[in-house]
Amino acid sequence: MIILENIHKSFGSHEVLRGISGTISQGEVVAIVGPSGSGKSTFLRSINLLETPTQGKVFIDRICITEKGIDIEKIRTKVGMVFQQFNLFPHMTALENVIYAPLKVKKILRKDAEALGKSLLEKVGLKDKFNTYPPHLSGGQKQRAAIARALAMAPEAILFDEPTSALDPEMVKEVLNVIKGLAHTGMTMVIVTHEMGFAREVADRVWFLDEGLLVEDSPSKDFFESPRTKRARSFLEKVL
C-alpha cells in the first residue's frame, strides 16, 4: 500500500507539486492523467523518491520512506519503475538487463536468475531476444524488456512513467497489452499516461492532476463518463 501525504515539490522558485495526498491500495491500478506540465511525472517519481519531495510524506507498506536514515535502496526493490525512455542498459543483453538486479542486489543464484529472466522475457513476448542488445531492439521491444526488468525484482508495485509516449504508434498496442496483462495479475500499478482509452479500460481509479494539485480522484468509469470538476471536463473534451 502506498500513502502520500501533502506532497510538495519545488524546482527553484517554481512549485510543481502543491500539496497532493492520496492512497493506493494493494492490487489497485491508478492512472494519473492531466495536461502536460501538471506535475504528473514529478508526482510519480516522488513515490520512489527519484524526486525528493520538498515537503510531505510518502509511506510504502506503512514505512515512512521520506524519513531520514531509511534504507531507500531496499524500498526501491519493492517498487519497480518503467520509464518513458526505457533506460535499458545498452551494454547488456536483454536477459542481462533483466537478471542484473536479482543477481546482484537480491543475490539469487545465477541459474535461478536466468530461469526467471527467460520466463519473464517470454511472458512479454521476447522469447527470441534473450541475447540481443538494446540498440538492436525496436522501441516496443525495449519497453517490454524494461517491463520484464522491473518485474524481475518481484515488486509489490510498478510505476509507469508515460510508458508509450516515446513509441511509434504501431508499437503502442503491444506495450499496452503487456501492461493490461499485468493488471489482471493483481499487481499494484500507478500509470502516468496520455492514452485515455487505455486508462479507462485498465485503471480502477483515475487521478486527474492540474497545476500541481490532485483535482479529481474518481473510479475510472465515473471519471470518463461524468467528471465532477469543470477542469476535468474541459481536459477530457480536448483529448477525447
Binding site: 520512489n48 527519484l50 535502496e73 519497480g80 520509464f83 546482484k104 542486489v105 510505476l159
Partner: peptide, 17 residues
Amino acid sequence: DKGQKEAALSLGIPYSL
C-alpha cells in the same frame, strides 16, 4: 543519460555497483 542512473536507482542497485 541520467536515465541510466535512474533505472539503476529504481531497481535498488547500490551506488558502488
